[in-house]
Amino acid sequence: MSGQENSPIQKLLSSEVKVVNVGLEGFVKDLQDCNVQVVHVEWSPPAGGDPEMAALLAKLGV
């Protein structure tokens, strides 16, 4: 147990947590409701997750 208490994750969670949320915005409100500092980064998979379109765009230089 003592090893886990000193693990990096334990250290992180025992100090003040600052969160960068990437993608789904729904998590932001939950964290804000718990008074956790959070910065949201809008992100979604390229071409909405359509691999065929993403490949086509790559060929077109995106």
Binding site: S44, P46, A47, G48, M53, A54, L57, L60, G61, V62
Partner: peptide, 8 residues
């Protein structure tokens, strides 16, 4: 149009 589709 490429950037619109790529970024969504």
């Amino acid at each position: 149009v490429r950037l619109v589709v790529e970024t969504g």
